[in-house]
Design a binder for these strands. Structure first.
Lengths: 148, 148
DNA sequence: GCCATGTATTTGTATATACAAGAATATCCC
DNA sequence: GGGATATTCTTGTATATACAAATACATGGC
């Protein structure tokens, strides 16, 4: 490999935003997955539970817009969580819609997640530091996240 | 749902680090996936190509350590990329090892990715802003990323 | 040399994710 | 009211990801 090629590759390695983002995502997700494992919940599912809990009655399109998820992704996640008994579909006027909400069991589960979530949250804060937390807040706002 | 429950859920929604991290990851990954799509490369694969290019001869365990990837994940990614003709396995002394490197085609592809990567990179920088970029650098260092 | 132990990787299984295409229903306009 | 169009969601397909278990080889002690 010649020098020019090496240089280009080196630049892409050192500056790549998506590389960093994905790596950090794996690390942080691992933290929460570990903490939530005893409850049988994954980080992805936890976030859906939380948003559903906030909305009360959740329209898939709305949840996807909030979480920036493809509708097909949510569709399958909801299906799995429905199978677990955490969510239930609610009949709607519009026959196309499939609004859902937490079941009683789902609400209980979500509350039971709180201590594990706290622990993971603390671990993540330690990793990121005070400064990192502030930064994350700003990034979230920069991306216009509804969760900020 | 009573007030106490709502409060807990609201806190988890507003403060959740993993939620933000995963959401930002989806947004940023989408940016790079779109830019790289004409080349038939995904963000995940691009990052493996880059690290392999840097290492020259890449041992799976080493790549996994750098990218914080499970070995089983890398194993399958490498297999797909080998099928594409981008990577090749190199025989090693230790018969357990499966070191690999870029093929000529893989090296060319990686170089051809540079303009698309630049475009995605610019898009990401616009999203994150100057400040966000600095923050990301710091986060990366905080997590001890080798890519910083 | 052999056996226990350790190391490097793959395989089995499950979830998460997105794009493209399909299905079902609603709306609009004539 | 009926057909074109838009909306909402699901299905088909492919990749990414991790954990647990299996495989295959190496190493060290006896």
């Amino acid at each position: 490999m010649n020098d020019k090629s090496s240089q280009v590759i080196d630049t892409m390695a050192r500056k790549c935003i998506v590389g960093r983002m994905r790596l950090m995502n794996r690390v942080i997700t691992g933290l929460y997955d570990s903490a939530l494992r005893p409850l049988g919940v994954k980080a992805s599912q936890f976030n859906i539970l939380v948003v559903t809990g906030q909305l009360g009655l959740a329209r898939p399109a709305e949840v996807c817009s909030i979480l920036r998820l493809d509708t097909s992704t949510l569709s399958r996640n909801v299906e799995r969580m429905r199978t677990q008994g955490w969510l239930e579909i609610v009949p709607a006027e519009d026959a196309r819609a499939q609004p859902f909400r937490l079941t009683e069991q789902g609400r209980l589960l979500l509350e039971q997640c709180a201590p594990a979530w706290e622990r993971a949250q603390q671990g993540a804060e330690e990793l990121l530091g005070e400064e990192g937390m502030t930064l994350l807040d700003k990034l979230a706002r920069k991306l216009g996240l509804p969760m900020s």
